[in-house]
Amino acid sequence: MTETLTQTAPGRAAPPAPAAPLLSVRDLGKSYGAHIGCAGVGFDLYPGEVMGIVGESGSGKSTLLSCLAGQLAPDRGEVVFDTREDGPRDILTMSEPERRMLSRTDWAFVHQHARDGLRMGVSAGGNVGERLMAVGARHYGEIRATAADWLGRVEIDTTRIDDRPGTFSGGMQQRLQIARNLVTGPRLVFMDEPTGGLDVSVQARLLDLLRGLVRDLGLSVVIVTHDLAVVRLLADRLMVMKLGHVVEQGLTDQVLDDPQHAYTQLLVSSVLQV
């Protein structure tokens, strides 16, 4: 077992979490015929919290993320989001226009493959500006200035603003995807293996960037990954999934350093140490 002790998970500038959760999930379940995608999942996510979901392939973590993000209709359960206008609303009973509006304003989704989250035929500036235009921005100069500002924040040289993402490296594409997602100031970000396809050296840079953004913007994040090092550095809390069920959840470093469930113990002890 690891003898090292973690630093605290990344803290945020936000004051202690207010009483109301931003996202409240109850008894969420989704089956594919006889196969269980996920079942009986429940948790509360508070403003400014980062929650990691780990588990091996087929554990249901991606199914769960899709259900949470409104991309997949679960069979049962509730996903209550604290909306800006109307307070807590179950996104599963929302109309599709409302849900889509949420997904391009208050929510963000960072895909594992930047290609799934970017428009490859559109310049970097256009990619970042799209969400602004989608919510009614109609001043070219302001849209461009905001896009340039965001490229800077994700450490992309602003001289690349008119280049298409295809000319970017994998790490840059991923950072561009993040800028594109965060430009409208979302409060909840879903991430699906955001460092998955990247070189290790690039991963560290991305993780550091994400940590800073999460802290400075007070973001709440649900991040799915199979990389325990990623959650240790990024997530406040951890949920461990196996065969569609949550087998353990708690404070990230506690779950990793003092795992209670057999599966978590196996998972943690299987990580190669360097």
């Binding site: 003898e3 090292t4 002790l5 973690t6 630093q7 605290t8 998970a9 803290g11 202690p16 979490a17 508070y46 919290e49 560290a204 993780l207 550091d208 940590r211 240790r232 550095l233 406040d236 809390r237 708690g250 404070l251 990230t252 506690q254």
Partner: peptide
């Protein structure tokens, strides 16, 4: 967990023997 995180942020410091940071 969030109460412990708040505690670690505002109240309880820790100096471990090992440094674990993002490279």
């Amino acid at each position: 967990p969030r109460e412990i995180i708040a505690l670690r942020r505002e109240t309880l410091g820790y100096v471990s023997q090992f440094l674990r940071v993002v490279p």
